[in-house]
């Protein structure tokens, strides 16, 4: 069954950790990179696409395109699409959710998480950078957690309550 397996915020976007750890652990075969800047720059999008191993398809979308994109459609490479939705900032996650994109769980990685593991300090950093966006995501009952790599513990920012 084709489905979104992971939604991640990572300011580095495509990098070795994503492709060698997360993709492997969760058997991702499709990455949807949601970033207006990259999507509007075909050259940069092509650079990211070239980094992909042969078994992974990368689709670069603007926020608007990502909302209307059919994540369960028949892919050209895989019968069952296991998708990672990747974005640079919490603002993109906020915009996606606000426009009706389904986000149940959001993983935060990247430089903030690389530097800090203490939950309180992580919350301070995230709230100082994205107060409005984070509040909106929490009020929408999205589970939010920080995780560096599949081997490290999840640090929960918010655990969704059963509806």
């Amino acid at each position: 069954m084709s489905e979104i397996k992971l939604t991640r915020v990572d300011d580095r976007l495509i990098h070795a950790q994503i492709l060698l750890l997360w993709v492997k652990t969760t058997n991702i075969n499709t990455i949807v990179l949601v970033d207006d800047e990259v999507a509007n720059n075909p050259f940069l999008a092509e650079i990211y696409r070239l980094a992909m191993p042969t078994h992974i398809r990368l689709h670069v979308k603007t926020v608007e395109e990502a909302i209307t994109y059919d994540y369960s459609s028949e892919p050209e490479l895989w019968h069952d699409r296991r998708t990672l939705v990747l974005m640079k900032t919490l603002d993109t996650a906020y915009r996606l959710l606000d426009a009706g994109f389904p986000i149940e769980s959001l993983q935060i990685g990247g430089s903030v998480v690389e530097q800090e593991t203490d939950r309180k300090k992580l919350l301070d950093i995230l709230l100082s950078q994205y107060p409005r966006q984070l509040s909106y995501l929490i009020s929408a009952n999205v589970t939010i957690y920080c995780q560096k790599s599949p081997q490290t513990q999840k640090v929960y920012v918010n655990k969704a309550h059963a509806s």
Binding site: A16, L19, F43, L44, L50
Partner: peptide, 20 residues
Amino acid sequence: AVAAALKMSLEIRLKIDAIE
């Protein structure tokens, strides 16, 4: 920026190729 992105992309691809 383009040079840095290219370096990153090429290094990832070479690493993945070696692992595969």
